[in-house]
């Protein structure tokens, strides 16, 4: 009880900080914080596919790209943002569903390479289909939407829009992983054969894990486009997919808060460590390697082990304390 109370308090404090912090930041600081919110959405999606359902995907960056292009193309053609967002969601859900089919046939590194190939193919389409994407010149002037009559063109309102999106996505995924679906995803990750024998339709859940995870990548892209106000192929290379993967793993795959933490490290830390210039990426890469050697389940994995150990100690102390009482009752 005290633990869940502490978790609630920490959650409220975190949310309050996210609402109040940008008031003290300049334009660029707010931009970076918005970028964090967007990348967190994409990482939450990947965490669902990889962390909960155990299906590796090296294509999350491509779905961010699909979402970004959907919004950029539609809003610059005069459609409202919500139409773009809906299209981003629908297209990335559908493509993610299709990408799930290979996962029914192959696993592990083969699946990694199929998704890797898909990621590169998507990049080629972004770059080459000029009639749709304007190729390497990119789509300029992606407008920021008005929400309920409030324009979000300025950094602060747009940040709150991104934060709102993150809140909605977080709630939805929090609900999902606690629903029977979340339990079925974990079963799929831990032992698909046994899950199947208990009536879990592993095919359908695998496809759903891919589709929903990818759809969240698309949602992230839908907010990325108006955030940057310009969409070209360069951000959506394989590097983005690998980056998102590292965010999930560093934070802690399969932990609800893992993506928040992972994105925090990957997006905000470079800004604080700007004095390191190019060395920053080297330091980050070395940090990831050291972390994985120490704890393959990421930062939250360390925390989780620590808490479990403490709880076990507390429980055994409680048992030790309880024993004499039982004895005295018997006597």
């Amino acid at each position: 009880m005290t633990r869940s109370l502490a978790a609630w308090l920490a959650g409220i404090a975190g949310a309050a900080a996210l609402v109040l912090l940008p008031l003290a930041l300049n334009r660029y600081g707010i931009y970076i914080l918005s970028l964090w919110a967007v990348m967190t959405i994409a990482a939450i999606g990947l965490n669902l596919t990889l962390g909960y359902a155990g299906q590796i995907s090296l294509a999350q960056g491509a779905f961010v790209g699909i979402g970004a292009y959907a919004v950029a193309i539609l809003t610059t053609s005069g459609f409202p943002f919500v139409v773009g967002l809906a299209a981003a969601l629908a297209v990335s859900f559908a493509v993610g569903w299709l990408l799930g089919y290979p996962a029914l046939r192959v696993q592990h590194h083969y699946l990694a390479f199929v998704t890797l190939a898909f990621s590169t193919l998507a990049y080629l389409v972004f770059r080459n289909e000029e009639w749709l994407t304007k190729g390497i010149y990119g789509i300029v002037g992606v407008p920021r939407p008005s929400v309920l009559g409030i324009a979000t063109a300025k950094p602060l309102p747009f940040y709150y829009l991104c934060l709102g999106a993150l809140a909605v996505v977080s709630f939805a995924v929090w609900w999902l992983v606690r629903s029977p679906w979340g339990r079925a995803f974990v079963a799929l990750r831990e032992n698909p054969v046994r899950a199947l024998s208990l009536g879990v339709d592993t095919r359908r859940y695998t496809l759903m894990a891919f589709a929903i995870g990818s759809a969240l990548g698309g949602v992230a892209g839908a907010f990325y486009a108006p955030l940057v106000e310009f969409v070209d192929p360069t951000p959506f290379t394989l590097a983005l997919s690998l980056n998102l993967l590292m965010m999930v793993i560093v934070g802690g795959a399969g932990f609800f808060l893992g993506p928040f933490l992972g994105a925090l490290i990957a997006v905000l830390l470079p800004e604080w460590l700007r004095f390191m210039e190019g060395w920053y990426l080297i330091a980050y890469a070395v940090f990831v390697m050291v972390l994985l050697v120490i704890s393959p389940t990421g930062i939250l994995g360390i925390l989780d082990r620590h808490l479990t150990a403490r709880r076990t100690r507390a429980a055994s102390q409680a048992r030790a304390a309880a024993k004499p009482v039982l004895n005295s009752e018997a006597a």
């Binding site: 029977p180 339990r183 899950a195 208990l198």
Partner: peptide, 8 residues
Amino acid sequence: LILAGQEH
């Protein structure tokens, strides 16, 4: 156990 029953 809940998992073992939920899909039914």
